[in-house]
Design a protein around this nucleic acid. Structure first.
Lengths: 201, 201
DNA sequence: CAGCGGCAGTGACAGATGTCATCAATCGCC
DNA sequence: GGCGATTGATGACATCTGTCACTGCCGCTG
């Protein structure tokens, strides 16, 4: 029997996933959560075989929780289950050494298959997303450039960003200029859009 | 027996919803689609009691399909089922006179309840979203202002936007300035963010 | 029919943005 | 120790953006 922890904030989807997994005779959902902060404590208590984590969660996001689980409880495998699947998310998931990564638009029979493979310690990665991620390449931004771009996405002026990150406005403009150039964007709006679509910020 | 048409592009979610509805003895899914373009033709052929439509779909989006269904097939009720639920989406759904509007983070028992009510011709609206929509108020932007803002979100310069919409760059700036002022934003980035979060563009 | 609001445009101006050259401190790495 | 990358900063410059005033043309609506 594969014991599963399920973290998904959209209740309806979680209920539906419960129904779906309930159809498999060799699987059992031992916990279903709607908050990322509960993942690690619950896993430590129940020691599930596989944790199915959404990325967009209230509290700790799924990728961060996956990295923590890897440290604290290497026996529990992680299957990341995400909606859109930005290429950058796959990279971050691989860094956290997750067992699997699938998108919600995969065929529904594939979930049970993926769960069994991940439980056995095998890898399961969404092939379409791997292709996109390889094409998009690695994140070209430095940490600071990503920080500045993230702050710029809030809509503030260069000065606002500088105040938020304790940087001189001129320095902010340099980082933004670098990011715009690296992303081959036309201006900061374009850069923000590209970085968000690639999952880099 | 309530006959249901289901349109949801994320296969996994669709399979899970099928499993969930399959648990109800008085309901039957007669069609499940992953493309918005198929909704109206399929509904005309099968005459379902309720169409459950996601908003974000490949091809025709769920709200547009809902409006068409209302015209072509008033007997079939529509239940919009969406992930994030921007307030503006609710307004558009009400204009299309949908039977129900619920978010995917509603409790899963609520889906069957909502389906039964909508099938009977009653209304079912997500209460939390109604509250947010009332607080946000109506879309303050004119059609042209929204067009320009949408184009600006692509990341182009004022001139690019002007070329795309066949407007003088100066006119584009005037519309953007109006939009920024109406949305109480600090610049176009802020305006784009606010309008997107409210579902106005 | 007068008035209002949306649409489209022009010109002017201050301020924000994007680019570039240049400098300096720090850190990892060969 | 030297090299390159990253971080942080300054100054100068051209360009883009946001704002304002003002004009004209529709299409409603009271």
């Amino acid at each position: 029997m594969i014991r599963i922890l399920l973290a998904e904030d959209q209740h309806l989807i979680r209920g539906a996933l419960l129904a779906l997994i309930g159809l498999e005779p060799d699987m059992e959902v031992v916990a279903d959560l709607d908050n990322g902060d509960d993942i690690v404590p619950t896993a430590l208590r129940l020691l599930p075989d596989v944790a199915v984590l959404d990325i967009e969660l209230p509290g700790t996001d799924g990728l961060t929780a996956a990295a923590t689980l890897r440290q604290e409880l290497p026996e529990t495998k992680v299957l990341i289950l995400t909606g859109l699947g930005h290429p950058g998310h796959l990279s971050r998931a691989l860094e956290a050494q997750v067992g699997g990564f699938m998108r919600k638009n995969a065929p529904s029979e594939e979930l049970a298959d993926a769960l069994r493979r991940v439980a056995k310690g095998q890898r399961f990665l969404d092939p379409a997303l791997v292709e996109t991620a390889l094409k998009a390449g690695a994140n070209p931004l430095t940490e600071r450039e990503a920080d500045v771009l993230r702050a710029a996405a809030e809509g503030g002026t260069t000065t606002d960003i500088g105040n938020a990150l304790f940087l001189s406005p001129a320095t902010v403009r340099n980082y933004l200029s670098n990011a715009i150039s690296k992303l081959d964007a036309r201006n900061r709006i374009d850069a923000i859009r590209i970085a968000q679509q690639s999952g880099w910020i």
